[in-house]
Write a protein that binds this DNA or RNA. Structure first.
Lengths: 224, 224
DNA sequence: CTCCTCATATGATCGGAGTGACATGCGTCA
DNA sequence: TGACGCATGTCACTCCGATCATATGAGGAG
């Protein structure tokens, strides 16, 4: 079975055979960049695991502005909330790249939760971790200015999606500056200014939907 | 067994006898206003359920400012994160009033999770709901101005702690304006101004560590 | 009862960041 | 390969909200 999936919380507590069995009950979904998996307000009780690519979780305000809650990559889980706590989707999930996901319905998960308590425990850990991250982001919104939040977001993305290269850490985040702005809760212009400033100082290099981090130390200091 | 506790997610899936048994393995803690249950950075793998009173969950920034993550009242859970996802406490819990809590260690919960899968499921629902709330608060930080966030916070507090009176909904939130400011991520002065404005319009009446909501409709409109 | 301290109230000033308006660059699709 | 459209880069302008300053009020300790 796919290595990426074995890292998902959903499979963490299962041995290879069980994981394969669970995996067999999941349905594959493929999306092109820009397509949505589900929309805010939709009914739904399916959970998805990202197999390949990236997905953004976002919401719209009444007046049309957008806020991004998270960028999710391989082995991460989407849509658990509506499954664990029945109710409509409270965010939209949209593909940032070509994406392959595996979906699991409430009814197909339930037996596993009862037969294998460790699965629940692993899910509890995963969602607790997510809540911790969300709390962190919230504190940053209150405590940090926009450049600080941009720095923090880039460092976070680099930890999850970065690959070391000769120049520095190459981070293909697949976000436009507009999207990056939505992720840190700021305007595109301000984010652009912050990025240009960082680039001017030699802390990073800008590329299309990617950055190369060249001075993680300084960025990290700026983010605090 | 106490009615308040029966409403807690931890006991939701248990019958009276089992609930009593679990309850018996929990230890009681009492705090006076201002005392802390645990501090950010502390090790810890205990979960608490509020039996009486209110507790705030908060964090300090490096430069000493404070941010409040949540106000928790009777039957709500505190400290689950360090229990489900082992690691130091990421926030401080401090009593807002005289408080009585029941604590449960990781080791004492584990057997229940394995013997009674419904307990895990109930906890998953509770924490999923909490994550939803947190996401809502985050969106508000991005989308709404300070008066809007204040209105939203008051409405939320009224739903949880309000009691109908002749004048309106009496909400004894037990927060100073300073604390209310930390809850909505704003300065004390700005929050005071918003409250004074609402009071001037006759939407609410200010009292010591409490408000009386007199025009929920308008407040609700202002919060959006 | 009387300080003293903490909470509340309110104005003046300043700055970060949003808004709007353009210019430029570049990828993609006829 | 040319052109359109989306993404990026940069203004000037405005404003919300933080900060600073000060006054008033109310609850607690002695």
């Amino acid at each position: 079975m796919d290595d990426v999936l074995r890292r998902a919380a959903l499979f963490a507590a299962l041995d290879d055979e069980q994981a394969g069995e669970l995996r067999a009950s999941m349905t594959e979904v493929t999306l092109a960049r820009g397509e949505s998996l589900f929309h805010e307000g939709d009914p739904g009780d399916r959970l998805y695991v990202v197999a390949e690519g990236k997905v953004k979780l976002h919401r719209a305000s009444p007046d049309g502005r957008e806020n991004m809650l998270a960028v999710l990559g391989p082995s991460e889980m989407i849509g658990e909330l509506s499954l664990f706590d029945p109710g409509p989707r409270t965010a939209t999930a949209t593909a940032l790249t070509e994406v392959k996901l595996l979906g699991l319905g409430h009814g197909d998960l339930q037996p596993w939760l009862h037969a294998r308590p460790e699965v629940s425990v692993a899910l509890l850990r995963a969602i607790a971790r997510r809540l911790r991250r969300t709390n962190d982001v919230m504190s940053d919104l209150v405590f940090s200015d926009v450049p600080g939040r941009v720095a923090k977001a880039l460092l976070d993305l680099s930890r999850r999606f970065g690959v070391q290269s000769e120049e520095g850490i190459h981070v293909a985040h697949d976000l436009t500056q507009e999207e990056l702005a939505q992720l840190v809760g700021a305007s595109r212009e301000t984010v652009n200014k912050a990025l240009a400033d960082f680039a001017g100082r030699g802390w990073l290099k800008l590329e299309a939907r990617a950055v190369v981090l060249m001075d993680v130390e300084r960025l990290s200091r700026r983010s605090r």
